[in-house]
Structure formats: structure tokens, C-alpha cells
Write a protein that binds this DNA or RNA. Structure first.
Lengths: 172, 172
DNA sequence: TCCTGACTAGTCAATCTTGACTAGTCAGGA
DNA sequence: TCCTGACTAGTCAAGATTGACTAGTCAGGA
């Protein structure tokens, strides 16, 4: 339901059409969520069926008409509900990268170390890029900081993992 | 592809049937991944089509026959490939819980604080439960530790967020 | 003027995921 | 013996997600 919350929250600020929503999310919110174009349209259609938003055609110049979405009263109520749920419940995170570690003993420890070093480089670059990002206004600042803290934590953990495999590589 | 890696990795250890795989994942690997029953069967069918695994019927007593899966040579190669990719590339994490924070200014700061306190309680309980888990053997130990470190980091971050909203609540 | 490449706006088919269901087996009590 | 509830094994249809595609607009150069 996070994506529905996101769309409602953006539409609540100002009416938009689908493409505009998608662009905004890909450009400005890429750090905290992903929302492909067809998914955005799918969700907008679903929310229209549920009566959370209403759409109307709009025509600008001689460009083809666009569907502009507007949050209804029911949608506003839903937004409040979704927002409270989102804030009060932690979203459980699963680390796909841990699955490889479960099977790491299929490889020589030296190989595992080499592969994890690669992972480390990408992670460190991601952290550096996030830290270098310009200080954003208000609410997005929290998201950026969250990301930085998370990536720092990941790097620290990864280093302990690498250290362990390095140790076992020397005794093989 | 993480789920394919997981299934291949488990089947490589010993042949299993679908239900058995699902049970094992739900019971022992719930901390690091989720894999619903129909998804497991879907992926097993797909991997069979791709030639990564082969299935054969097996009958025990007068129970209904079961399909037992076995990793083929092509599947073994694929496993190595997927494992190396998984280890060398960090899996980018998205925090659905951050979406609510983007719109937190729609609520009174005092309300946000109350909601985040709830989130904190659940998170702390999760951490306590994970720390209390019995020390697992070898590779799963890494996953548990990862989870603990992550949850500690999340709690620390959440506390700074709560502090900020508490501060702004007092000036409203 | 005409062409090219970029931008806008959205659709489609294929794939993936899941809640709810079916259907057989078995152990233990009434 | 018969019934109930739990376990085993898997299916189905509905819903969600995405890569690849379509089709119109527009600016700028040849």
C-alpha cells in the first residue's frame, strides 16, 4: 500500500497526470521507491475504480489529451488511514544479498572475499554519492539521512563479513 | 533471481519436493526471505522448462505421488553464476516506511511522534526476538547478525527522527 | 521545407505473486 | 467404527509488475 500512499500524497499536493507522477518519482524519489510507468497507470486505474481519485481529460494546445487525476473525499480519508499505518508500522526489510552468503561455503573463501570486495566497492560508491547529494528541503532530508545511516551500517557489517572469510581463507 | 538461487542452492544439497522446500524456507529462512507456496511451484516449473532442474515422480507408502526435483548440470552452472552475482552486487534496499515521512507534515507533530513511538515498540520487539534466537550454525549466523545490526541501526535512526518531531511539536 | 532525435503520454503482452481453495492421509478420541 | 482436526501436496484464478512497444509533438539543423 506504500505506492498508493505515495500517489495519493503527491496528488493531494496538486492534480497531476500519470506521466508527470512517474517522472517526479523517478527523478526526485528514486532513493526511497521505485515505480515503473505501467505500474503507476495500473494503480491510478485501480484507485479510480475504488473512488479514491477522479480523472478528467485535459487538452493543452494541440497536444493529445491527457488524463489528470484529482483526490476525492474518500481518497483523502484513505490517505490519512494509509499514512497513519505507514508511520506506525515498521516495514520489514529482507536482504536478498544474504541468500548468497548462505551458500558461500560452496566457493573457496578467497573467491568469496574477492566477490564481497566488489560488493563493497559498489556500496561505498553509493554511500559517497548519497553523501554528496545536495541538502534537500524538509521531508526528503530525512530520507537521505536514513539512506546514509543504512549504507554506513551495511558497510560496517560487510567489513566484518569480509574479515571472517579472509581469516578462514588463510587456514584453507 | 535471488529466489532461483535459493531454490537451486537448497536442491543442490539434496533433492526435495516442492512442499518440503516451501516448509524449510518458511520455517528456517523466514528472517532473510519470503517465498509463498504457489511462487515456489511457479519457479520450480520455470526452472524445469529452462533445464536447470529435472523432476521425477516418487511414491511413498500409499500417499499420493510427489514431484521430486534434482539439479541438472546446467542448473549447477547457473547456480555458480547466480551465486557470484549475488555475492558481488549489493541489493539496493528501499524503505517503504520512508514514504510516510515524506508526508508527515500533513499531520500535527505530536501525532507523528505518537505514531513513530508505536513503530519503535514493534521494531524494538523485533530486535529483542532476533537477539534471543538461539545461535545458529555457520552460514545462517551471518544472516542473523546482519539482521541485528540492521535493526539496531534502524532504531538509532528512528530515535533521531522522533527527537526531531518532538522538538517541532513543542514549538507548534 | 524536411528530417532527425528527444520528449511526452500511454498501452500491451508476458511474467510473477498470492490468497483461497481442493483433496488425500493419518492419528487419536468417542 | 466413525469423526474431527492436523498435516501433506499442490492448484487456480485474480491481481501486480515490467520490458518493450506505439504514436504524437516539437526544436533545430541541412
Amino acid at each position: 500500500m506504500d505506492r498508493e500512499l505515495l500517489l495519493l500524497g503527491l496528488l493531494r499536493r496538486s492534480d497531476m497526470h500519470g506521466y508527470q507522477l512517474h517522472e517526479f518519482i523517478e527523478r526526485d524519489l528514486a532513493t526511497c521507491t521505485e515505480l515503473k510507468k505501467p505500474t503507476a497507470y495500473f494503480l491510478l486505474d485501480k484507485m479510480t475504480r475504488l473512488g479514491w481519485i477522479v480523472q478528467h481529460e485535459e487538452r493543452e494546445g494541440n497536444r493529445p489529451p491527457r488524463r489528470v487525476y484529482h483526490v476525492s473525499a474518500a481518497g483523502e480519508a484513505q490517505f490519512q488511514q494509509l499514512l497513519r499505518t505507514n508511520l506506525s508500522q515498521p516495514s520489514s526489510t529482507r536482504f536478498g544479498g544474504d541468500i548468497g552468503l548462505i551458500f558461500a561455503n560452496s566457493l573457496a573463501s578467497a573467491d568469496v572475499v574477492a566477490l564481497l570486495e566488489q560488493r563493497r566497492v559498489v556500496l561505498a560508491a553509493d554511500l559517497a554519492a548519497t553523501q554528496a547529494a545536495p541538502a534537500h528541503a524538509g521531508s526528503l532530508q530525512l530520507v537521505i539521512e536514513h539512506r546514509i545511516i543504512h549504507l554506513e551500517s551495511e558497510l560496517g557489517w560487510l567489513d566484518t563479513v569480509i574479515a571472517r572469510f579472509t581469516a578462514s581463507a588463510s587456514t584453507e
